[in-house]
Amino acid sequence: MDWTALALSLRLAAVTTVILLALSLPLAWWLATTRWRWRHVVDALVAMPMLLPPTVLGYYLLIALGPRSPIGALLIRLTGESLPFTFPGLVVGSVLYSLPFAVQPMRASFARVDRELLEAAWCLGASRARTFVRVVLPLSRAGVVAAAVLTFVHTLGEFGVVLMLGGNLPGRTRTVSVAIYDQVQSLDYAAANRTAGVLVALSFALLALTYHAQREGAFRWPTT
């Protein structure tokens, strides 16, 4: 059992979830409310990582962040470090890879908030930001929790992007799914079995907890 890899995966999932929540709240709200004619393009872009093979995403990120691309070169100049094969590089990849899992549940629950409630809040003097915090967020709790859980579990299980972008450096970029792959490659089925079992149990426990809380009425799971 590769505990270092598991710890790294949990850390990656946690950091990715926090960043994605912060990023997706405004993005999902904008997508749910804008009447901009090209919003469908943004919608499609956000959904892309769901359909793209993870290796393709990982490959492009590796090229884009590498020292020979303008972006990569700029990052090296600014931070003195190259992102591929580092933990921050993995975070960038995971954020992009799990973006649709954060945005879409939030977007769906934001879209279900009755516009009349927003108008009532505005006429009662609440700014748009305050309306979002005091009306939209409390009524979208289910969607936000769903987004967080899905992002976390999805990041925990990612493989293709991690392998392409992060490689397999123990303690730095070797996640639990890469560890399983390694164990199978070296024909250590017993270890692979244990690690895979832990991952299955963890993901199941998280989802089961979420569903339980939903049934207890702590929040509603989005129905669409």
Partner: peptide, 13 residues
């Protein structure tokens, strides 16, 4: 202004 519509739009939470 105060504004009240047909269904009141009370905040359900």
């Amino acid at each position: 202004v105060g504004f009240v519509a047909q269904h009141g739009a009370l905040f359900p939470h």
